[in-house]
Simulated scan of single mutants.
Amino acid sequence: MNPPRYKIVFDGQLMPEASLEMVKTNLARLFKSDLARIDSLFSGTPVALKRDLGEGEAEQYLTALQRAGAKVRKELDQAASLSLVPTEAETVQAEQVKQAAAPHMTCPKCGHEQAKAAECSACGIIIEKYLARQAQLAEAAPAPAAVATAASPYAPPQANVAEQLPQYSELKVLGVSGRIGRVRYLGWLMAMTLCFIPIMLIGTGIAAMSSTLAILALGIVSIAAVVIGIFIGVQRLHDIGWSGWLLLVHLIPVVGSVFALLMLIIPGTQGVNRYGPPPPPNSTAVKILAWLFLLVPVTGIIAAIALPQYQGYVERAAEYQER
């Protein structure tokens, strides 16, 4: 008995917390297709994105597409005559019959349907010149394209998408792209603080020789700290799903302090968001640095309470000895 075959079906629904534009962009990248064909997948009609798959292949496609934000499902692929989902060949054949019955045409670039003409009324291309240019590009290509342009824009794009989307985002301290979670945000802030402490001590030594040189060095170090802090803050906002421009809220009195606290409390989005895949798991060093960062304000609060009490105790002891 032959093992069952499966198909991946999509009817335009999105995974939780996924935005429509982000999903369209991910699908266009995975299928190596243009947005005009991707838009046709969101009409609400079930479309078989991939057919005749083994169980392992179907699971790979299911995982990759759900990670991209598309709410797809795996179904048994019955015989073509019993399938409720039209195949690509059937769709192409139906479109060819439709075109033969009516004096209409489909733009080869944007897929716009219109009466037969030399120029597309939607995108404005001269159709003969566009087709000639595409033929030249096809001849100059190092290898023939594996997927031909379908006559119908409603045919599902074809590409091997399994495991194409990275599982985790790449970590880059010097940059505003990517995502970092709450623990890594605290750990990186603590690491930056520890790196700048010896630099500040060196600046103190320079001040003994030249105050002008010390002020210049202090200015350079301060600017570097602010820039790195912006990079880290933007990546933390990306993990929540917010724009990095919201970092400007820190400039607002009182509100900025509350916003900084929210950045430490609000967890990141699960899975892929519009800023990329989730950050990788936290290392042991990151966790230790994050705890050290939390201990700094706690230690300061304890010292602020204990030092006045100790000073009062010393003063009372001195008065008692004088008596």
Rank of each mutant, 00 (worst) to 15 (best):
L294P: 04
A138S: 08
A141E: 12
I266N: 03
G203Q: 10
L247W: 06
M1Q: 08
A132Q: 14
L82K: 09
V314N: 09
V249D: 06
P198H: 06
P253I: 02
Y275V: 02
L35F: 09
M190N: 12
S43P: 09
A148V: 05
S211F: 13
S283M: 05
G187T: 03
Q13A: 11
L189Q: 15
Q96E: 11
P280D: 07
A140K: 15
S83W: 01
P281I: 03
P108R: 04
I38V: 12
I228R: 02
Q93D: 11
L62N: 13
A94Q: 15
C123H: 06
M22D: 15
F259A: 12
P3E: 15
L171H: 01
P103L: 05
L186Q: 09
G229M: 08
A260R: 04
A117W: 08
A260N: 11
Q66A: 10
R67W: 02
V234D: 01
K74P: 03
V249E: 07
R37C: 06
K287G: 06
M15V: 12
S211V: 13
E55I: 11
A224G: 15
L248T: 06
L62R: 13
E57D: 13
M22T: 10
L294G: 04
N26Q: 11
S43F: 11
F10K: 02
N2T: 06
S222D: 14
L246S: 05
V173C: 09
I266M: 07
L137S: 08
R274H: 10
V47Q: 08
P16T: 15
G44W: 04
P198S: 13
T193G: 15
E315P: 00
F31P: 01
Y185P: 02
E319Q: 13
V314D: 08
Q114I: 09
R37I: 05
D39C: 08
